[in-house]
Computed example of a mutant assay.
Amino acid sequence: MSARTGEIQFVTLGLGAEVFAVPVEYVREILDYTPPSALPEGPAYLLGLTDVRGRATPTLDLRLKLGLAAVPPTLATRILVLDVPVEGRQLALGLVADRVIEVAAFTPDEIEPAPDIGVRWRSDYMRGVVRRDTDFVVLFDLPRLLTSQDAAVLDAAA
Rank of each mutant, 00 (worst) to 15 (best):
98 D>M: 08
87 E>R: 10
116 D>C: 06
105 A>T: 14
98 D>P: 05
96 V>P: 12
119 V>Q: 12
99 R>W: 01
86 V>T: 05
119 V>C: 10
101 I>D: 14
93 L>H: 01
100 V>P: 11
119 V>E: 12
116 D>F: 13
96 V>S: 10
99 R>E: 14
89 R>N: 06
118 G>H: 13
85 P>R: 08
91 L>D: 06
86 V>C: 05
104 A>G: 05
98 D>H: 06
84 V>I: 09
84 V>A: 01
115 P>I: 08
105 A>Q: 15
108 P>Y: 10
95 L>G: 08
98 D>Q: 07
113 P>C: 01
89 R>Y: 07
114 A>T: 07
93 L>Y: 01
107 T>G: 14
106 F>H: 12
95 L>E: 03
106 F>V: 13
101 I>H: 10
103 V>P: 03
102 E>G: 04
89 R>S: 13
92 A>C: 10
99 R>S: 14
100 V>C: 13
93 L>F: 01
103 V>S: 04
115 P>V: 09
89 R>I: 00
97 A>V: 15
108 P>R: 07
97 A>Y: 05
87 E>I: 00
82 L>G: 10
83 D>T: 00
100 V>R: 13
105 A>Y: 11
90 Q>R: 09
102 E>M: 06
84 V>Q: 00
115 P>Y: 08
91 L>S: 07
89 R>T: 10
84 V>E: 00
116 D>W: 09
89 R>E: 15
89 R>K: 14
108 P>I: 07
113 P>H: 01
114 A>G: 07
110 E>G: 04
100 V>D: 14
87 E>T: 04
91 L>E: 12
107 T>K: 14
113 P>M: 01
103 V>M: 11
92 A>R: 15
87 E>W: 04
107 T>D: 11
89 R>F: 07
89 R>C: 03
100 V>I: 15
114 A>C: 06
113 P>L: 01
88 G>Y: 06
109 D>E: 03
119 V>G: 08
105 A>I: 09
93 L>I: 05
86 V>K: 09
105 A>D: 14
100 V>Y: 11
107 T>M: 10
114 A>Q: 07
117 I>N: 02
115 P>G: 09
114 A>H: 07
103 V>I: 15
85 P>F: 10
109 D>H: 00
97 A>M: 12
119 V>N: 12
97 A>P: 08
94 G>E: 04
102 E>C: 04
117 I>P: 00
103 V>L: 13
107 T>I: 06
87 E>M: 05
108 P>S: 06
108 P>H: 07
113 P>F: 01
95 L>T: 04
100 V>M: 14
103 V>K: 02
88 G>V: 01
115 P>W: 06
117 I>R: 07
82 L>I: 09
110 E>L: 04
114 A>I: 05
104 A>W: 09
112 E>S: 07
117 I>L: 05
101 I>N: 13
106 F>K: 12
101 I>F: 02
110 E>P: 02
91 L>K: 11
88 G>N: 03
82 L>D: 11
116 D>N: 13
102 E>F: 03
116 D>H: 14
97 A>G: 08
82 L>A: 15
102 E>T: 12
